[in-house]
Design a protein around this nucleic acid. Structure first.
Lengths: 367, 367
DNA sequence: TTCCTGGTTGAATCCGTGG
DNA sequence: TCCACGGATTCAACCAGGA
């Protein structure tokens, strides 16, 4: 197989055509995140259709059932192989599906070397009831979130997700409404343009969780362009592919009309590990935690004294705030910033509080 | 391969041994429902510590270790083939797993000709957090509910599920707590006997949804016997298989100690058009007002018995707590929450007290 | 008896950077 | 690619003990 050498990445575009063929023209290792909503095409309405939309005949015998799954598996493997080639080493992928297809997809993802990070459940707040009363109301869809490989150092905006969820960790089950009302794209007859248009809230959360500003997002099954719209709104770059001309046209119009949010608003909530580092010694130096200060753990069971060079001393043992915390509690490691306290105005505060105060001072001075 | 011809079905027993080998000795087409909790193939690497430096007691048992996906797939296919042979034509199977294994299981189920009816999400109300902040909190597990084949005329107790769920259709996402506290089996050192004991409320709902009185339930990975206990409690017949002697011994003892509920209370609620609102069902399911509990009015003149689906029974009259209160007092209406009492520690308390105590119910209504 | 606090725990594929 | 080390990271329940 040959690839177009040196082809430019078609950024912020929606390409019309077959995603496998078009992806073969794009350069390897070029996208940061993928969202894919592939066709389900299984066991619907008495007729079976292959992924290429051709009709499967002879529905009832076992051979054809197997043939149908095999065709779907081949299709799935083919597009996932191309997607994986386009992903940077640390990129992640989201794939959404239902019980008809998600187990095939999950298995093939694993077989291809993707590393599953979570399966995320979209709980629909307003699902269609089960009219015949023969099953549980099918009230959710499943998304698989996976890194390109086990070794990927993927992006997860933990602090942003926690902030979005009332300051507790975001769980793997998300309650979101279906795409209805004015958000739903319709044709001139008022009929829905696409049978499975995804809600914007879903893509909002997906992109906010796993991408940064200017990251390149690929959607090989763009449909009516929910991923495209949210990528533009959140100031991510976008590459979309859609085979059906009506859908592609709708998605392109939607993408053009979308306006990016102000740049400040789309910056991710900073994670603590991304904040500037402050050596403990500089707090001692600046007198914020003076040498000689008596440090103790929360229960006041362990104490230590601050030395002028930023080490601390307990009995005859000397070391960094982290080292001594670990040694004195027989722990393999210790975060000295949150372990050690000292008394100020009669109450115990952690070193972390002082550190936070000090960076604020620095920022005010700098700003 | 040869099978023992005419072997009696070992009903209401827990067999010690490898499930694939033992299932080969059992006659075809003999069970009505299967619940299977196979090893998840977690592939945990190092140790994990909480932010307070305490060690997480992860699953490191040998029975959860497989060489690779191919080995796990072979194991899965082998036990599913035997299970399917034992299933009657109209039987259904439940398999529970996490993202580590559930996609393999779902694909193999489909390949073997099983017909998936639902994927059901067990949303954990109290999951373990993600301690490193690198993923979404893994807050659910997935159950696949499937019929033996597309043509199966399977059992689904629609009315009972609706009654259990506030008189709206039961959805495919279930909020239930982990198995903790006194429900958790422990050894003489107070340590958990089994790393992954399932909560009784989960099996309560599974068996109530998909089996009838005297149906034969098979659990090829019995573990500490939650399926066994609930089968006996709900008056289903049971066949269990467990390979590990310690688990099997615990399960057998647990099964012996379990007592069946009164026969009237476990009969499925007959399908009716308009059942009253019964949010009471979730308290029953969770054992806060156990099925079989004797309810009475304040003067102890009227009594009724709690059924597993949240209806109550007085003589031959069955209905919601509200309906029966009204009927038995010849009143136009009745608030069952304040009308019905039961004895706890020698004193009468109202159902409303239990409802108030149950913070979980409040959250489920809100969620 | 009740309320409060502190301790423990649960199917978990759980770090990033710089030398 | 490997190793060392700084330091970031948790939620809901249940239980025991003391006020």
């Amino acid at each position: 197989m040959t690839y177009a050498v040196g082809m430019e990445l078609p950024l912020d575009q929606i390409l019309l055509g077959d995603c496998i063929e078009l992806m073969r023209l794009l350069p390897s290792g070029s996208v940061d995140c993928v969202f894919a909503d592939p066709p389900y095409n299984l066991q619907l309405r008495g007729e079976l259709r292959r992924p290429d939309d051709s009709l499967v005949d002879g529905v009832d015998d076992d051979w054809d059932k197997f043939g149908d799954f095999a065709a779907y598996d081949t299709f799935t493997r083919n597009w996932l192989v191309e997607v994986r080639r386009l992903m940077r080493k640390d990129a992640t992928i989201w794939v959404i599906g239902s019980y008809h297809n998600i187990f095939r997809i999950g298995s093939i993802l694993q077989d291809l070397g993707f590393w599953i990070l979570n399966d995320v459940i979209w709980r629909k707040s307003n699902p269609m009831p089960n009219f015949r009363g023969r099953r549980f109301t099918n009230a959710h869809e499943t998304m698989i979130w996976a890194a390109r490989g086990k070794e990927s150092r993927y992006r997860f905006n933990y602090a942003a997700m926690k902030a979005l969820n009332d300051d507790v960790q975001m769980r793997s089950d998300w309650l979101l409404p279906l795409c209805t009302g004015s958000e739903r794209l319709r044709n001139q007859h008022g009929l829905k343009l696409h049978p499975t248009q995804k809600p914007e809230s879903l893509l909002h959360r997906v992109l906010l969780a796993s991408t940064g500003v200017d990251d390149i997002v690929l959607d090989p099954f763009t449909g009516t362009g929910t991923t495209a719209a949210l990528a533009k709104r959140l100031r991510r770059r976008f590459i979309g592919i859609e085979r059906h001309p009506d859908y592609a046209e709708a998605a392109i119009g939607r993408y053009r009309r979308e306006r990016p949010l102000p740049i400040d608003s789309v910056m991710a909530t900073p994670a603590k590990r991304d904040l500037p580092r402050v050596p403990f010694g500089s707090l001692v130096e600046r007198g914020l935690v003076p040498a000689g200060t008596r440090l103790m753990d929360k229960q006041r069971r362990i104490t230590a004294t601050v030395s002028p060079d930023g080490t601390i001393l307990s009995g005859t043992i000397r070391g960094s705030i982290h080292q001594l915390g670990a040694t004195l509690t027989n722990a393999p490691s210790c975060n000295g910033w949150t372990f050690w306290h000292f008394e100020r105005d009669g109450i115990l505060i952690t070193l972390d509080v002082v550190r936070t105060e000090s960076t604020q001072v620095v920022r005010e001075e700098a700003g």
